[in-house]
Design a protein around this nucleic acid. Sequence first.
DNA 1: GATTGGCACTCGCACGGAATGAGTGCCAGG
DNA 2: CCTGGCACTCATTCCGTGCGAGTGCCAATC
Lengths: 347, 347
Amino acid sequence: MQNERRLSVLRAIVEDYVKTEEPVGSKALVERHGLGVSPATVRNDMAALEEEGYITAPHTSAGRVPTDKGYRLFVDRLTTVKPMTAAEKRAIAGFLEGAVDLDDVVSRSTRLLSQLTRQVAVVQYPTLSRSTVRHVELVALAPTRLLLVLILSTGRVEQRLLEVTEEVSEETLASLRTQINTAVAGVVIAEAGEALRSIARPADQPADQPAAAHDTLAAAVAETLIEAMNDHRSDERISIGGTSNLARFGDSFDTAVRPLLEALEEHVVLLKLMGEATAGGLVTVRIGAEGPYQELSQTSVVATGYGPGDEALATLGVVGPTRMDYPGSMAAVRAVARYLSRILDEA
Amino acid sequence: MQNERRLSVLRAIVEDYVKTEEPVGSKALVERHGLGVSPATVRNDMAALEEEGYITAPHTSAGRVPTDKGYRLFVDRLTTVKPMTAAEKRAIAGFLEGAVDLDDVVSRSTRLLSQLTRQVAVVQYPTLSRSTVRHVELVALAPTRLLLVLILSTGRVEQRLLEVTEEVSEETLASLRTQINTAVAGVVIAEAGEALRSIARPADQPADQPAAAHDTLAAAVAETLIEAMNDHRSDERISIGGTSNLARFGDSFDTAVRPLLEALEEHVVLLKLMGEATAGGLVTVRIGAEGPYQELSQTSVVATGYGPGDEALATLGVVGPTRMDYPGSMAAVRAVARYLSRILDEA
DNA sequence: GATTGGCACTCGCACGGAATGAGTGCCAGG
DNA sequence: CCTGGCACTCATTCCGTGCGAGTGCCAATC
């Protein structure tokens, strides 16, 4: 790929095709874009581009369509991420400001992203594993029934019910509460387990009766909390929005919409599709067959990581047909991730 | 509608049409069902049924299709809800048993329902307004930053952050916590607000300095809690699943799938569509144009209420094209609602 | 050597008419 | 009231044709 104009032609093809959803011909190209050459010249370039596998013709008498390889070149070299307008920025900030809790933040982000991109938006809830413990609360609902509330730095709250065999006094509970919070507040989840276990079996304590009872309780609480922390089921929590945007692609229902609808049900598949979270404003683009699933060879993913302090705790992005507005999507994804991270910072 | 056989014919038409998705003719009818009469006879009956508006012919040389009115008669008089098989019951119970918290219960129910019916399932989270307060927890995250956790009888947890102007001591917090819980534990949401306000401005207290501080704090906490309780935004929380089942109806994309996809995004629309929750095992069926939305004249809703003690706190059901398996859907909806209510009873 | 206008060629698609056949309505006889 | 027979309707399917968008190639031009 040497020629400079050829790249412009490819860019023009991609832009036109994304806009019109129809194969684009040489004549239409020179008209709509200001390339100062004749259709014939463009045809030569197109022939070369096709030779190199960047575009393809659905059939002889139709225009050209970008291939995955063509889109790839486009996003890698032919596009500069266009910044959001001031108005858009204000809209994003305003929309996210009003959120009352983590659920709300995530669902607002999802709606926002789907509206900005007119695609299906996917937002993963912040992972447990790399966040820190903010507070642990023990509540006696009944003499032998405890509610454990685990509050994380991301604002996420996990709760577990725990039935114990012996009645628990309010004093025991209070002391255990203090003990636990001293031990784990501010500690990363991954390391909190060890701290909890050490409370349950302190090395220096004699084996008399009340101490044993306290330890049994502490052990049970510790185990439940550890279980909640390691609950990777909840790592798979995601929020999906903008499904109705798929309606725009009703024509390619079987090749694009149907597989995507199915993938959206399988959260595990979806998360794998989104890929590893990338930090620092880096947006990942996965085009068509580049992804791990054959059935989704008509689907692209634009994603990035987010989290407080630019540490990528979770992924967020949009999913749609390969024929999508990559620059716009990338800009929107990056902007939402940035604002979302900022909100998590503050909280 | 007098003739007995005509009803059988209608039933046969509905069943066949739902199964084959194609207009059904007189000949096919007598073959597939054991009506002991000739096609000609059936034709006469069909003519009568059409006259009365229960069925209609898409065009002259095609078979017949049930009208909304036809489906209505079918669900009202021609169907006995078939009970779930023992295996299905076990599957339902087993599937719901494993849930760890309310979120999990709801999302499992959704998945379950969509799998049983092969339709789009919608489950509304239990409403705040008619549930009772189980516990209120106050946590000092920082000297001037409080986390309020509101735990309801349904297992639902609402949390709010509250910034206060003056530092709060642990003792003040503890006493306020006790006060609040004494006042509102077990009280219905609707009445809890009054109880909270009375804590904030006790009639018999002198106006000296520390008391005033305590009152300011109490008032702030009370208002935040009341706001959380009256947050009808969270009444609109719903869980949706089985969207990919819409893929089966790819043919009627524009008339059925697209409007439904759009409605699924609009939670308010969806809730209105599901209608008032009905208690006591009563399943509501809303067929096509019977619903409030013209664009959804091709969709039916099968829904019922659920909640602890058979009090309908929320709605759950399935949404799909009018051409749906009503008996099966009704049975599944009823069964899931029943098990779900039972789980809420236990918790 | 790149660019351009000209021109023949390809091929999908839209349009129109004919054949097909499923399904109906009606009628006369049982 | 049911049934077999029969003429009729009309959506769907299948060709065949014409059209036109778009291409590829070539010779001429700058």
